[in-house]
Write a protein that binds this DNA or RNA. Structure first.
Lengths: 226, 226
DNA sequence: CGGCTATTCTATAGATTAATAGAATATCTG
DNA sequence: CAGATATTCTATTAATCTATAGAATAGCCG
């Protein structure tokens, strides 16, 4: 085999990964899988895409070995093939944030403008959890909370927040987090909480970022609020 | 704008980067640009691709803001848009190495099998440079050496190695490095050197890896061999 | 086993991309 | 300014990809 053919074969392999991430829907799927394993149907629903199309996209991801599957009865659960995939996804989005003006302006219009106060960094979040000076809310769907959450966080999906306000102690500042920098669950939660008179801020990092930082994750439905 | 539209718009942006890296030729171009800026013609030649096609690929990369250009006379020099692009490229290839069996088998057949002895890691390389117990050869094209090289390395492009053997001191072990883990220049250099009776090994990391590690880079043609 | 559900496979029309030829542009040189 | 060179733009065809319908598969439940 010649140089040229070796190179061609090699770059063709790397391009499989590029190709897998060349479709908006597939990146969204990977992003969702970064929150924990999910069935095809759940993914289809969350991306507002027909199951068949979702399955086709998942096949592409499977062919690039970015996801793995597990069968449970008639359901097939998809998950990321490794932590490095989640990391790669974060890097891809960071690169987008750094180099694509459109990402910046979308974030500005849809996140920052609504999240008037400064977001809580991971570092500050850790400190204030240690000091117990905040109440941490995980506003993602219950299932994602169960699959893994920041220790000490209480699960109140944003869809249930309005009718579960009574559960939230007044007095302490609230911090809401969700899937990541571009997830709007926490933005909505903070808007609602502020409208109801709470002091609330948003973490601009989600669970994948917490995990990527090597911090401990708690699983199950225990609401270890303190 | 609704959630859904925000998400669609956002993921469409991220997919631009995926799309840019969805073509083998474009990854190769990015890889070459990781060695330093190059003209369209040089890139076309090194990828064995018509200039027109190369220009078209470069346009796609430019549209994703992964590369920038600089004009000098009638030549247009392309370069990576930032260090983060080089890092992303490394991550993409690491992901490929971790998850694609084909990458592993290509590396085995084309690199490892020929590079019988264990490769020199960056860490060992640094130590032995400090201790001055090796002669370090940069076997990439001269132009890339001039654009940036490991301090203390001597430039002998692999194409000139055979007739410049006299320049290489006997006695000390030789370490050859080139563009990165999948670059075969250093493999060839080591093969030739061993055939001529030198003790020679290959660094499995190239200049971009050295730079990514935050280590100092020397530019210009000074052959600071010690 | 037969019906049911979740998912995948196969096929297909429409949209997108790749490669590249031909024309156009930008810059230098004299 | 005319000619030369490097590059880009425009247009075209072939190849590829997307979305999704229809058929097939795998496992559950009675």
């Amino acid at each position: 085999m010649s140089h040229r053919r070796f190179k061609d074969a090699l770059y063709e392999q790397f391009a499989r990964i590029g190709h897998a991430t060349a479709s908006p829907r597939r990146i969204e799927l990977l992003d969702l899988l970064g929150q924990g394993e999910k069935t095809v149907e759940a993914l289809a629903q969350e991306t507002a895409t027909p199951v068949k199309s979702t399955s086709a996209h998942l096949r592409v991801l499977r062919q690039a070995n970015l996801v793995r599957t597990r069968r449970e009865g008639t359901f097939v659960f998809y998950r990321l093939a490794g932590d490095d995939v989640a990391r790669f996804l974060r890097d891809l989005q960071t690169l987008g944030r750094n180099h694509l003006a459109e990402v910046q302006s979308l974030a500005r219009d849809f996140i920052e403008r609504r999240d008037a106060l400064e977001p809580v960094s991971l570092k500050e979040l850790r400190r204030r959890l240690r000091e117990k000076t905040i109440t941490l809310l995980d506003v993602r769907p219950e299932q994602e909370y169960a699959a893994g959450h920041i220790p000490g966080a209480r699960s109140i999906p944003v869809s249930q927040l309005r009718r579960r306000l009574a559960e939230i102690p007044r007095g302490r500042e609230i911090v809401a987090y969700c899937r990541g920098p571009y997830c709007v669950f926490s933005v909505e939660a903070v808007e609602l909480l502020r409208a109801k008179g709470y002091r609330a801020r948003r973490s601009d990092r989600g669970l994948p970022d917490w995990r990527a930082a090597g911090l401990p994750i708690e699983t199950g439905s225990g609401t270890t609020i303190r």
